[in-house]
């Protein structure tokens, strides 16, 4: 995967790029594992010889295979296992001597993002895919995910080059962030037509990751108010960045102006500088920041007049509300 993609080392991301990453991340929630996996993979049985593994890997050009017994997955054999065996010149041994038992698995109807997180946390190269009954239905590599996402992006984008670049970035992002997932949206000033779209997407992503309806609603309301403030009150628009971690959701909303003269006053219920025209649309009740403070656990509003505004919010997740990585970890525990 890496050879075909120019790896970016810079951590600075332009707004245009950020928008594209967001689309790939969204797809990672929308697409299911079974849509991108390789179905009916070559399988082996525990009593076969390692010699046969060597031959199969060579002929089929694969680097790993699930070990099954009556359709049930019992292990996995990889090229690394084969190398260990080769070092000892032990090709006559049975697979069961070298295979990894009870391997990590993903479910066919899990969203791709779950598999991505599993790849990051377990560092394995391939994941067997099982159905609800635990029967093997396919195998998944990171390459499968990239190809699947690229295929889905084909409707969105024109050139092959750009598509590759964008999909590759997702992996970099997810691998570097490890336990968290970041959603980023650029909001244009005065763009009432798309008002509320970013917050809807954030809410939907949270629900898909298994957040409780209450948490999704609180997060939806807080981001909606912040999003509308960017649309109504800023000169250049701004950015909403949401980081989802197992224990908390951090929302960061920032813009480059005009800033707020008196932050304390802005926080007062009913205070608004919205124009008459905007008020006619039902905005400018001066309740947005108050609403936000009710929905989040921590809220920090900082502003420099003439420079910009930064609003940071956190929602803490109790054990039962855990989302994302925690969600995956839970299903891992069940398997062990």
């Amino acid at each position: 995967m890496t050879e075909q993609t120019p790896l970016r080392k810079s951590s600075l991301i332009s707004d245009q790029e950020a928008e594209n990453i967001t689309r790939v991340e969204e797809l990672a929630y929308e697409i299911k594992v079974q849509e991108v996996m390789t179905p009916n993979p070559i399988t082996m049985t525990a009593s076969m010889k390692m010699q046969e593994v060597l031959e199969q890997f060579r002929v089929a050009r694969i680097s790993g295979a699930p070990i099954v017994e009556e359709g049930q997955l019992i292990g996995i054999i990889s090229i690394e296992d084969l190398i260990r065996c080769l070092i000892k010149s032990d090709l006559e041994a049975e697979i069961q001597k070298y295979m990894t038992r009870n391997p990590f698995t993903v479910k066919g109807d899990d969203p791709v993002v779950e598999a991505l997180k599993m790849f990051v946390s377990t560092k394995v190269g391939r994941l067997p895919v099982v159905n609800k009954e635990g029967l093997l239905i396919g195998i998944l590599t990171k390459g499968d995910i990239t190809r699947g996402l690229l295929k889905a992006l084909q409707q969105d984008y024109q050139t092959e080059e750009v598509r590759r670049y964008r999909a590759s970035h997702l992996f970099e992002d997810i691998e570097s962030e490890r336990t968290s997932l970041i959603l980023r949206y650029n909001i244009k000033a005065g763009d009432f037509t798309h008002g509320g779209e970013a917050s809807s997407k954030i809410k939907r992503a949270l629900s898909r990751m298994g957040a409780s309806p209450q948490i999704a609603r609180r997060c939806g309301i807080a981001t909606y108010e912040a999003e509308m403030n960017l649309i109504i009150h800023t000169t250049e628009g701004g950015v909403i960045r949401v980081e989802i971690e197992p224990h908390q959701i951090s929302i960061d909303v920032y813009d480059s102006g005009p800033g707020i003269k008196d932050v304390e006053l802005a926080m007062k219920p009913g205070y608004s500088t919205a124009s008459e025209k905007v008020r006619e649309l039902g905005f400018g009740a001066g309740m947005g920041l108050v609403n936000i403070s009710r929905c989040v656990d921590i809220m920090k509003l900082e502003s420099v007049w003439g420079k910009g505004t930064r609003l940071r919010m956190k929602i803490f997740l109790k054990k039962e509300d855990t989302v994302g990585e925690g969600h995956a970890a839970k299903s891992l525990e069940e398997k062990r």
Binding site: I221, G282, A285, M287
Partner: peptide
């Protein structure tokens, strides 16, 4: 209500 922030809460 016609004020969106009020509806939100």
């Amino acid at each position: 209500a016609d004020l969106l922030s009020c509806v939100m809460t």
